[in-house]
Design a binder for these strands. Sequence first.
DNA 1: GCAATAGTGTCTTTTAGACAGTATCAG
DNA 2: CTGATACTGTCTAAAAGACACTATTGC
Lengths: 259, 259
Amino acid sequence: MSQAESEAAFLARYDPADYARPAVAVDLVLLGLSGGRPTLLLLKRDRHPHAGRHALPGGFVGIDEALDDAAARVLREKAGGARAHLEQLYTFGAVERDPRMRIITVAYLALLTEAAFAEARARAPALIPGAVAASPAAEGSVTVHAADGAALPLAFDHAEIVALAIRRLRGKLDYSEVGFALLPELFTLRQLQDVHEAILGTGLNKPAFRRRMLDRGWLDPTGRFETGTSYRPAELYRLRQTSSQTPSQTSWQTPAQGD
Amino acid sequence: MSQAESEAAFLARYDPADYARPAVAVDLVLLGLSGGRPTLLLLKRDRHPHAGRHALPGGFVGIDEALDDAAARVLREKAGGARAHLEQLYTFGAVERDPRMRIITVAYLALLTEAAFAEARARAPALIPGAVAASPAAEGSVTVHAADGAALPLAFDHAEIVALAIRRLRGKLDYSEVGFALLPELFTLRQLQDVHEAILGTGLNKPAFRRRMLDRGWLDPTGRFETGTSYRPAELYRLRQTSSQTPSQTSWQTPAQGD
DNA sequence: GCAATAGTGTCTTTTAGACAGTATCAG
DNA sequence: CTGATACTGTCTAAAAGACACTATTGC
């Protein structure tokens, strides 16, 4: 406890380390569901390196900008302000992952509802949809395909980032409320099951799925029903608002436990 | 596809962005089990800021050093080379988390066997053990206590980092092989159950635990038995070596899925 | 009425908890 | 023998899968 000087005096004298620093970026895995498949929104690179390949939208982190704020800003800038559920995924820091310079990137998962997905496409026409194909077992890698079926090769280590995003989503889907980030405010149980099946890449047992979801206590029936169907309309549910959460912070926005 | 110049020419001309960059560090949650409780190894800060508080060992990431390598180096430098299972946790990037300057820190979980824990304490006497108390429900925060029971306040946002480490460990414990990182090569089923109970903070049903672990197919019975007991000796097991893994990369060392 | 999908009832299978029992050591 | 702990058998309870059944819409 031999602190002769005050904290203020120390801070005034403190000389920021002047070693060379890596650049820090955030990259967004913009993910929605399109045609029953998980689908990314990618930017085609027209410059070196990896010109012609497709990349995750990203940007550098400002010196006075929190990581989460940088992710939100990149979402605004690159996806035309479409709303998305943002969640930090993992930080990639291999030395040669970008040949231009040392860039450490913090990958974020950005989940888009169908409406937000369409809005992003409309406001940011440069974004190219790429359907993600991943085996249901999902230990490993993924492939991405354009609308016409052509393979979309990803730039840098972005295929690895996307593979991790899918693994994480699958891992949290059943025990967390993250799946609701892909649905509108009102949804039917069938839509919820469709989301789970699309992410997992497998079919699910209908009665068991309904029982599980209803027993979780996450759902509030609205008493309203879908319209415009030519068959029996399904009841509309909404995600129950859990208390002890700020309006801007819902429970599926906390850092992963499982993972 | 209008690329007149070669990639090499482009790279030679590339001017690294010269905006101010945050510093990037790694911090280690050095965690072992001591007296049946999860226990951290901490460094007492003798300088501003947060002088007198206890902090996670950490260090800056070198410009030519991968993140995982930086974590391994800090482990060597600060824990006297004790072996540990290293796994990236989360990246903390609030602007004011360090009053000296903007530091983004990538937190790593470093799990120590009992032997490695003792070795680290012997070779790095500055490391102070702090027992972690976390409610079994574990939504939230943790407290850390010295051997004499006094509370150890943590510096910076390190309490938040430790809380996340415990949540993640608890989340992965049952479905991953991460728990074995806290055990020696040969161990009894009771030791394995003790590890799970210490991490979860709850008691577990013995027959069900044995069934689950044996049904997982992770364990290889050795036919050998513990010695020196005054009661019936238990059989020793070892973690089954799964194929398709390099010797230095076992299955519980891959990025988290659950979380 | 038919076609299509929503939603439920129930049987079976699997998995976990509870708890008592036997087995094997030191002394 | 006792005491302590390893290990197992078995009953019960809870959860999940399978599958058929009823309900409600448009036409």
